[in-house]
């Protein structure tokens, strides 16, 4: 959606180093150390994954690592909770379809 640049209690958004992550192949600028879900929500990504059977979209629900609704494939590893995983420069994030792909022969 958008970042909160000014806040009546918390003040202006502090300066932060920028890193680049790749979301479904596209470079996206992120604030160093922030959670992946925060970056994606700031850029307005409508959904983070689609469910196994009915291919329904999902995004964050609890935002604190409990519900696992926001999981995505991060650096090739599926089911990473994006709300409690910090961005790193060069990180590769993929919208996860179903269970995701672990690679290898046993994943199909």
């Amino acid at each position: 959606m958008q970042r909160i640049l000014e806040h009546p209690i918390l003040g202006p958004l502090p300066e932060e180093e920028k890193v680049t992550i790749y979301v479904d192949g596209e470079p996206v600028e992120a604030r160093k150390g922030e959670m992946i879900a925060a970056t994606l929500m700031a850029t307005g990504k409508p959904y983070f994954r689609k469910t196994v059977k009915r291919h329904e979209p999902r995004s964050i629900f609890c935002g604190i690592g409990r519900c696992t609704d926001c999981v995505m494939t991060v650096n090739g590893i599926p089911n990473v909770r994006t709300c409690v995983t910090a961005v790193e420069d060069g990180m590769v994030i993929e919208t996860q379809m179903g269970f995701g792909d672990w690679g290898g022969n046993d994943s199909k």
């Binding site: 959606m1 958008q2 970042r3 909160i4 958004l13 922030e34 925060a38 964050i60 935002g63």
Partner: peptide, 8 residues
């Protein structure tokens, strides 16, 4: 999201 991550 709003108070920790500063994202609406």
């Amino acid at each position: 999201m709003i108070n920790i991550h500063r994202v609406l």
